[in-house]
């Protein structure tokens, strides 16, 4: 089916003259049906539809199945597959090279919530402007099925027995750490995933996307909260979410009080159509409440949980030049010759 789509779209180009193929990566070597592949496809689609130039994107990952996936999208973008749990630091440093690139980080629940919990919380706290996607399947896939930090308490896995520990809620952790954009989604809900990725790419700050992405090989039993069937049955969307690019008219008519509009800093808009509840994603306390409720009621709350566009990004704090730092030449980097006398005078 992917090939047919590729065939069909080959002739089509977006506003920057690129076809969808220009956004693809290498063929995936993940398992057939892996949630991660679906997310990769939505990243490709989102970037294509947003008319982003792949050379203006930069991707990062840690270690694990999820962290392999940047190889399967955006071949024309630079990428760095770093160390287990330490993608955040790598990305933080690398993005300073050219702060005008859009960063996409790919991580998993082990990479983020176990070994990488520290770095995850710190990149969030620093508000490094990038998209941080966690492909959350509750299990270590690449080492063949051990419990991860997000595995359900009581989860039974073939070789592991019963998981005795309580799970980490990644969206909650992000929120606690002052994330400026927190969303949760489900790989089985590709439309929502795509719209959230678009919104995240337009966010000025860190955008954390905790996406439940089933592992078809090790953790896809009907009774685990990381499976396709459980997700499909228990997903409760906070709203119906659509992304409207800058300078595009909103074509949909809604009754009063049925939609919330969030204007992003680049002029684009995220339209949130009311479903069962009235949810305000700019209210942090409400975000905590809804996550707590989701865990208590054993449902999968999805959508834009929290957004706050006011805080400065890490880059805002450094007063950097208008050109990328990595293009500056010696005349701008090495102090002038005459300053050396001043330096020696400053010593004793």
């Amino acid at each position: 089916m992917t090939d047919q789509l590729a065939q069909a779209s080959r002739s089509q180009v977006n506003l920057v003259g690129l076809s969808k193929n220009d956004y693809r990566g290498n063929p995936s070597s993940l398992c057939q049906g892996c949630g991660h592949n679906s997310i990769s496809s939505q990243i490709i689609a989102a970037c294509y539809e947003l008319n982003l130039v792949p050379e203006n994107l930069i991707k990062f990952s840690g270690i694990g199945c999820s962290s392999k996936s940047p190889f399967y999208f955006l071949n024309r973008s630079f990428g760095f597959n770093g160390l287990h749990g330490r993608m955040p630091s790598l990305a933080t440093g690398a993005m300073f090279g050219n702060i005008f690139l859009k960063g996409i980080g790919l991580s998993g629940d082990g990479d983020t919530a176990s070994i990488g919990m520290g770095q995850f919380k710190h990149i969030v706290r620093r508000n490094v402007p990038m998209v941080y996607i966690i492909e959350n399947n509750g299990v270590y896939g690449l080492t063949k099925g051990q419990f991860s930090a997000t595995a359900d308490e009581g989860l039974e896995l073939k070789k592991q027995g019963t998981n005795p520990y309580l799970p980490v809620d990644i969206a909650w952790e992000a929120l606690v750490s002052h994330a400026t954009f927190v969303a949760r989604s489900f790989a089985g809900d590709p439309k929502q995933v795509k719209e959230l990725i678009k919104a995240a790419l337009s966010h000025k700050g860190i955008a954390v996307l905790d996406i439940i992405s089933p592992c078809v090989t090790f953790n896809n039993q009907d009774d685990t909260s990381h499976s396709y069937s459980w997700g499909k049955e228990h997903e409760v969307a906070l709203h119906e979410l659509s992304y409207v690019p800058p300078a595009e008219e909103i074509m949909i008519d809604y009754e009063d009080g049925q939609i919330k509009e969030v204007t992003m800093h680049d002029g684009s808009m995220v339209i949130l159509k009311k479903l069962d509840r009235d949810y305000d994603p700019t209210n942090r306390a409400e975000a905590f409440r809804v996550l707590e409720e989701s865990n208590k009621d054993c449902c999968l709350i999805t959508g834009l949980i929290y957004i706050n566009q006011a805080p400065p990004t890490l880059f805002d704090l450094y007063n950097l030049p208008d050109e990328p730092l990595n293009r500056l030449t010696e005349d701008r980097l090495r102090p002038a010759r005459e300053t050396i006398d001043k330096v020696n005078e400053m010593m004793f």
């Binding site: 630091s89 790598l90 990305a91 710190h122 990595n326």
Partner: peptide, 18 residues
Amino acid sequence: EDELAAIGMVVGAGWSGL
């Protein structure tokens, strides 16, 4: 936040040409 992160950032920065 620690030396694990300090070196990670530096490797990222070095890779991006800084």
